[in-house]
């Protein structure tokens, strides 16, 4: 537009529609937070349904929760909190320009995320599928879950497990999306694309990852620790 733009040194990281790098970074943060607010409302509907049904059918919630493993749930909580920590450290190493450690931290985050999903499927979902803890026409707790069949209100119990699968499933799905973003980020980081001048992608992905962590922080006591 003006000839001044052609003559002075232009910051290659600053897009032309922003005045300053600070303004650009704030816009990027704000957009990410707007997306997370939308995500919050998406999960919020499920949390609200959970609250209403727990309030109405507390006995079923107590019965259903007593068959979820605090050990595996707790282990997964530790794994996810650790992955949030490695992600936060990744942001730090990106900001100080240590791209080697950044790549390492991103790989650690991905690894911990994969452990989380693997534990969830292998030790929580698959055994339940096998023993008939599937809401709907295949419902019929047997084997390890046989004493659940004695609960008088099977429909209410199915509601509990319906929400359990939907909420932890949507959470796990968000983690899978996270993997899909993390892998390109790891490749780009290994290629040296990030650094003190270019870290917003890492920071914003970190926001997403921490958000997923926060959802689990609530899901854990809500499903595994109903007393």
């Amino acid at each position: 537009m003006s000839s001044a733009a052609d003559t002075h040194e232009h910051n290659p990281h600053l897009a032309h529609h922003f005045e300053t790098i600070e303004q650009q970074e704030e816009a990027q943060s704000m957009g990410m937070w707007l997306f997370l607010a939308q995500e919050f409302m998406f999960f919020g509907g499920l949390f609200c349904a959970y609250a209403v049904w727990r309030f109405t059918y507390h006995d079923a919630w107590f019965e259903g929760s007593s068959h979820l493993s605090t050990f595996w749930g707790g282990l997964n909580t530790i794994v996810l909190l650790l992955s949030s920590y490695t992600m936060a450290m990744g942001v730090y190493y990106c900001q100080i320009g240590d791209t080697k450690r950044l790549t390492n931290r991103l790989i650690m985050t991905l690894g911990l995320g994969i452990v989380f999903v693997a534990v969830k499927l292998q030790f929580e979902w698959f055994p339940k599928f096998h023993d008939g803890v599937v809401p709907g026409q295949w419902w019929g707790p047997a084997g390890h879950y046989a004493d659940m069949a004695a609960f008088p209100e099977q429909g209410h119990l199915q509601l509990f497990y319906f929400l359990y699968y939907v909420m932890t499933g949507m959470h796990a799905f968000h983690m899978l999306i996270g993997f899909g973003i993390l892998i390109p980020l790891i490749v780009m980081s290994a290629m040296g694309k990030f650094g003190p001048q270019r870290f917003m992608a890492i920071l914003n992905f970190g926001l997403y990852w921490h958000f997923v962590d926060i959802v689990w922080v609530f899901l854990f006591p809500m499903f595994y620790l109903v007393t």
Binding site: M30, W33, A37, Q38, M41, C48, A51
Partner: peptide, 20 residues
Amino acid sequence: VQVFAFCGLFWFAIMMVFTF
């Protein structure tokens, strides 16, 4: 950014209060 971070919580609070 802080306001945007808070707005998700705020709308969730509206939903819970009206539902209950």
